[in-house]
Simulated scan of single mutants.
Amino acid sequence: MTNGHHVVVLGAGYTGMFTAIRLAHRTRRTGVKITLVNPSGRFVERLRMHQIAAGQELAVRRIPELLAGTGVTFLQGAATAIDPGARSLTVDDSTLLGYDTLVYALGSSTDTGNVPGVEAHGFTLNSPEIAGRFAARIAEVAAAGGTVTVCGGGLTGIEAATELAEAHSGLNVTLVSTEEPGSMMGDKARAYLHRTLGRLGITLETGVRVAKVLPEAVELADGRILRSDACLWTAGVKVSPLAADAGIATDDHGLIMTDASLRSVSHPQIHAVGDAAAVRMDFGQLHGSCQSGLPTAQYTADAIARLLRGKTVKPFRFGYFHQPVSLGRKDAVIQFTKADFTPAGMCLTGRSAVWYKELVSGSPLMTYRYSKRMNVTTLVSKGGRATLKPAA
């Protein structure tokens, strides 16, 4: 019944990779064909990009190697258009790839278009190549006792700032944020975070917005000019316009609007996972993270396998359970949370938190490895009563 059914997974980040590998295992011996499409042949561990930025060399993971033994076909190329009516997508403006089911897993990237000068003078963690160029620049800045400005006080900005300060003792690190770093944490975890920022000598500029990034400075909205020999931009995200351009229903930010089974509300043959999907629970819309992304991938692989067998699927349920933050290689803080991401009473700090964070960062690769042979369940909370049903 499913013989020849073609599933195309668009995007080989954390969620796309997991969807393809798990679906291959769930549909073995059924004749289902799976193709994974991605512009690069390298699998990017986005949870570790701040380590590359600080000058650390990480193992290069090749997508074909991660897929070995699964039967999934890898097509290296960038999708440039989707035709939902014809159920096809164009890759690199020439290859036409048909599909019966499409999994949209293109993820997100740091938005550099909202503040003048970011595109020209700032660095991001959008790719290993950019992070590597930033690392080379930082080595020069640190040797001269210069200053780096990290713009954005979210978890990515915190991890990047602490990693840089720990790795380069001669570097002056300034963290600029519109909100207090760690504002989403409980009092104990937030206090520990700020003590660590102080111990590492990081200068905080909070409650202020960046107005412009200059070649050797950052201009704040209050008119002050901060000297900056290098700027790392971690504020704001954007998604590919591919879905919206194709006429697929998206929200104001370009995320695919999904139903309770993570299928497009306008084109049910398209499933959306990870950062590119607008997924709502009763407590609100999920924000882009590996914590919520991998469960959407797991659910979607299982849902497609069940649909191909003519079975029904239950609505997707998810609840957050932690906020893991590395503070360099030797320190970390883990804030455990309620399902809606508000802080719970417990947190981890110090060595136990370092161990926990490393376990979290390494878990996707381990999950892929074992998912080739068994149905591995990601560590996920369904949130109890908080997520008994998705939002209407």
Rank of each mutant, 00 (worst) to 15 (best):
L10G: 04
G11Q: 06
A12L: 08
G13E: 09
G13M: 08
Y14W: 11
Y14S: 08
T15G: 09
M17A: 05
F18I: 06
F18N: 08
A20G: 05
A20S: 07
A20Y: 03
I21E: 03
R22K: 13
A24E: 14
H25M: 07
H25S: 11
T27Y: 12
R28E: 14
T30V: 13
T30H: 14
T30W: 14
G31R: 02
S40G: 05
S40T: 13
G41K: 06
F43C: 07
V44K: 11
E45N: 09
E45P: 06
R46T: 08
L47Y: 10
L47P: 06
R48T: 12
M49R: 02
H50I: 05
H50D: 07
Q51W: 09
I52W: 01
I52H: 05
I52V: 12
I52Q: 08
A54M: 09
A54C: 12
A54T: 14
A54H: 07
A54V: 12
G55P: 05
Q56C: 12
V60P: 12
R61V: 06
R61A: 09
R62F: 10
R62Y: 10
P64W: 04
P64A: 04
E65P: 01
E65N: 02
L67E: 03
G69R: 04
G69F: 03
G69D: 05
T70E: 04
T73E: 14
F74E: 03
L75W: 01
L75Y: 02
L75Q: 09
Q76E: 10
G77F: 00
G77R: 06
G77L: 02
A78E: 13
A78V: 08
A79Q: 07
A79P: 07
I82R: 13
I82Q: 13
P84R: 05
R87T: 11
R87Q: 15
V91Q: 11
V91W: 02
D92L: 03
D93A: 14
S94W: 14
S94G: 15
T95R: 15
T95F: 14
L96M: 15
L97N: 09
L97V: 12
L97K: 11
G98E: 15
G98Y: 15
D100Y: 14
D100I: 04
T101R: 15
T101Q: 13
L102H: 12
Y104G: 01
A105Y: 06
L106T: 11
S108M: 03
S109A: 11
D111M: 00
D111F: 02
T112M: 07
G113L: 10
N114C: 06
N114Y: 10
P116I: 02
G117D: 00
G117A: 01
E119G: 10
E119I: 06
E119F: 03
G122P: 01
F123R: 08
F123S: 10
F123I: 05
T124Q: 03
L125T: 05
S127D: 07
E129P: 04
I130R: 10
A131P: 02
A131T: 03
G132V: 08
G132K: 04
R133F: 11
F134K: 07
A136V: 09
V141D: 00
V141A: 00
V141M: 01
A142T: 00
